[in-house]
Design a protein around this nucleic acid. Sequence first.
DNA 1: GTACTGCTGTGTATGCTGTACACAAATAAG
DNA 2: CTTATTTGTGTACAGCATACACAGCAGTAC
Lengths: 255, 255
Amino acid sequence: MAAEELSKRSSLLWDTQQRPGRGPKPTVNRADVVAAAIRIADGEGLSALTMQAVAAQLGFTTMALYRYFPNKETLIDACVDTALGTPPQRSGPKEGWRKEVKHWAYAKRAMLCSRPWLAELPFVAAPHGPNWLSWHEAFLQAIAETGLSPEDMMDVLSLVHGYVSGSSDTAISLARATSRGISVEEWAQAVSSDLCRAINNPRYPMLSAILTSKSGGISEASPLPARAGRPRSMDESFDFGLERVLDGIEHYFFG
Amino acid sequence: MAAEELSKRSSLLWDTQQRPGRGPKPTVNRADVVAAAIRIADGEGLSALTMQAVAAQLGFTTMALYRYFPNKETLIDACVDTALGTPPQRSGPKEGWRKEVKHWAYAKRAMLCSRPWLAELPFVAAPHGPNWLSWHEAFLQAIAETGLSPEDMMDVLSLVHGYVSGSSDTAISLARATSRGISVEEWAQAVSSDLCRAINNPRYPMLSAILTSKSGGISEASPLPARAGRPRSMDESFDFGLERVLDGIEHYFFG
DNA sequence: GTACTGCTGTGTATGCTGTACACAAATAAG
DNA sequence: CTTATTTGTGTACAGCATACACAGCAGTAC
């Protein structure tokens, strides 16, 4: 049964290896192996992360790695958790839950963008390691003062967490492209040329209209409070969405 | 430069192959190849999706596939777009933007969960194909009546889209596990045993407190409007978050 | 001390992967 | 009919994760 496999993977993440005294001392430890692997992923992308590359980085034979991790999957599990890092420490007095959550959200987005290869892994399927928990812990501390019930706190956590990780996709995609030597302009060109295939295509009337409208065709006719009509940057859109999420939380819980 | 590669990948997604008359008729077409590949991914997971497996499924030699797709990456691009499918057609009168958006969000979540292998691909990096656009189109139609400006519509789209795809992670992970023969109980057990490592660990005081509190320890002391104290299911949490997102949008634009 | 045990890193081998290349059969255009 | 072009095949290769047997080291038991 594959369920045991899950718990094996997980236990390796939490295992503090105490070596019994017999035999030669290992020349490195698991953390060193993980560091080498992350260096490769950071520098050359996930596809360059092979067992041979990691071994070479450490001056080892490939097979020596299997003394530290039983297989590549568990090595990657460890890389993911280490790469998540720990959320930045917020020193000084609390600034209110809303500001605290915003800091957390920005930090998480920045972390994800700085390691675009993380998003190439189905890392929800990976076991939850110490650092993954520490991000959750930090969030809960950010909203500790609100006095919400445990269940509500977890719901708020999964709401914000969901929004942040989902809406960072585009930024991550850009980060990956630039780390592969594609310029921002080239990337934007590629994305927009995909979108522009909708123009004048009867299958996409709304999209077509929006893409051709010189910002305002629709909003001018509308009596609604519209923000400035210029197109928004990715970061502005992220920020806008985050504010709406926080509004939603605020209105529900704190009227 | 890798930028040309992006546009090559994209153009294959939109290409309606008209074959010049010379040479033998191909026995199948691209759609057949994609269908075979998706059948494999659906049935045996992404790791079983090899060129050899797809070819075997079609009764071909492996190399024959390269007459239809120049490499595996472009085949997968096509699989992703096809697997996204088209959003369900909403017939009948519109029920108001809020209900329409909810329908869209549920449909998208259901689609993602029904094909957990989609989440194993960095598919934001993939080019945006016809079906990807059709989901965006459907969303825009859901909020068409609001009369928002094009820029605001796009921001609302990316907000809801971000929330839905990000917060479906856990459900997708479960779907993947069950499709691999792991029972719901086993999966829940694995996840919760990871979480429970936080208990009594001084690194995770909040998490520890929340996990040990029998639902109410914190909320009882709170004068805030709390929902029923029982733990929520994944779907309930998703729904709760979605409502908050919609609240946020509503208050901002239609306050 | 000496023998034993269990660990480390190495060397070699295997099966699977994506894919390059040359070719034969098939088909339409001239 | 000839010629050009395309389909599917066969063979080949490099790169991948990993199984297995082995050599040497470092403690433990006597």
